[in-house]
Design a protein around this nucleic acid. Sequence first.
RNA 1: CGGGGUGUGGCGCAGUCUGGUUAGCGCACCAGUUUUGGGAACUGGGGGCCGGUGGUUCGAAUCCACUCACCCCGACCA
Length: 605
Amino acid sequence: MRFSKLFCPTLKESPNDAEITSHKLMIRSGMIRKLSSGIYNLLPLGLKVMRKFEAIVREEMNEVDGQECLLPSLIPSDLWKESGRWDKYGKELLRLTDRHSNDFCFGPTHEEVITDIAKKNIRSYKELPISLYQIQTKFRDEIRPRFGLMRGREFIMKDAYSFHANDESLSETYMQIRTAYQSIFKRCGLDYKIVQADSGSIGGANSEEFMLTAATGEDMIVDCPNCEYAANLEAATCSQVNISKSTNYSSENSNNTQSTTQDTAKTQSQTSDVTPSPESVLTPDMGTIEAVASHLKLPKNKCIKALLLFYGTVPIMVLVSGDDQLNECKLKIELDALFPEPQDIRFAEESDLQTLNLFHGFMGPSTLTDDQFQKGLIISDFRLKGIKGACAGANKKDYHLINLDEGRDFTPKYFFDLRNVQEGDTCPKCEKGTLSFVRGIEVGHIFKLGNTYSKAMKAEFLDQNGKTQPFEMGCYGIGIGRTVAAAIEQNHDEKGIVWPEELAPFSVAIVLIGHKDPDLTSAAESMYRSLKEEKIDVLFDDRKESPGRKFKDLELIGIPFQVVVGRSFKETGKVEWKCRRTGSNGCVGIDELSQTLNSLLTNGS
RNA sequence: CGGGGUGUGGCGCAGUCUGGUUAGCGCACCAGUUUUGGGAACUGGGGGCCGGUGGUUCGAAUCCACUCACCCCGACCA
């Protein structure tokens, strides 16, 4: 490719709305342009990088017997009604109507479609297992699209689905695809972690995420330096040790049988230390844990954070320690298990508080009267089990209660693990490592779906005994655009992108300095031709631009190697090569150029 | 959805508070000349219904109302 012919509108400055490096660099390097919020044009350079990544994904998927299909992006609502998601999937689902008033959605994911294919075309266990995948444009109407391709509304995703006669077969394929994913990210030279994920509302099945570590990542990864434990913050747990240790209260309880004789002893010794009766104290305008704790000179973990939310129509007061944060994901899982029908969780609004005669910032569990909270439920995080001398809102404006003992002054109906793990907690797996937090970008998700969809949609096959069974299913996604963006987050410097060779839009750039010199021009031209013949993907910067500009553009675009045809060629007959990543360079005669480049490209520099 | 912010040539901005030249600057673009190893110099040029609609006014980018688009933030306690 000649640069003079390439449509690559580079920019010296990045537009105002680009926040993170990858977004800025993709715009500046002429890879993408925004069309609308979360919707982007992929220009030639951007598309080329995407295609290179897709090719790697295809190779690795095919390697584990994945077979590529292409499913429609527009899906009739019937299928989504069959699975039950037409009503469940919220506003993220873009719904459309055709001229016959038939409802469709723009597929945000394709479980329904693929399950329908299996249902209609797979009869026998003999045809299983089977893995199908596609690389396709999806649409999710995100509340807040941001960061360019990182969190767009329209995006390209590789999604794979596998069908099995039994769980063992599913596990086997799951592991194969897991390995394929590892090869994919490794080949691209990307720094990734596999973390345990929240399996969401679909069921307790296995689910792991592939995360690319990056400071700008939207996800928080909890990582154990001592063992291989890593989890998404939403799913992360910690050793029971922390629960008792950090609050200094007993963790004896029925739900999580970690109690030891030591714990019991501690409880007893503390019980003898009798807390005075609860007392109401004036805390004017102190609606935050921060303010209350400092006013009452109490540590934050002696203050009870009481949150009011609704599970469907049921008011739920959730208690967590003042220094903890509620993990809504964990809460949802527990509540779903408690109630017959899964519901959405929402935080109480001002009007709800008025109805219940409660006050923002002054809520607590101990003085909730029956008429206030007759239909409600108080549940608490484990860490508050057995807390003594605590402080909580008095359910009266500007008042808090102190000297509260759990069990004496308030009694939550249930105790669960409801808090976010904190940095410094102990690893739940090895019980030794101190958990630390790393930011990451979720680029892949592998998931044992089980038979949720096949059951709902009656997608069944005949097993060896001639019995009808729903398929066991797995699903496996990779965000194509997001991976490309994340690759830039991991591979850039102040000058621009530094592509890993596998993803680079071109392997080598020939820079002609001195386009008016016929000797230089013809040397560069013949070099260009011979590299092309060698099947090296070369970009020939033949533009009649100043040298500075050419160098800047090539660095911005991030081509791994540069070959300069200019002054030194005139003087010595040799051309210079330079590595974008390491800055290493050298001179080489034209005859040896392709050999040198080939060795640089295969071995790095 | 709630809160905040921004819309002025392709990009980055000034001008708006305090209404009044022909709406300006840098970069980019076009032509010519000179340049050619780190985003060149000079000269000349093109390009704007100041997001849209409606109002106030002799007069609106500027004031008012509505609207649209885009961006940022959003349990920290309930």
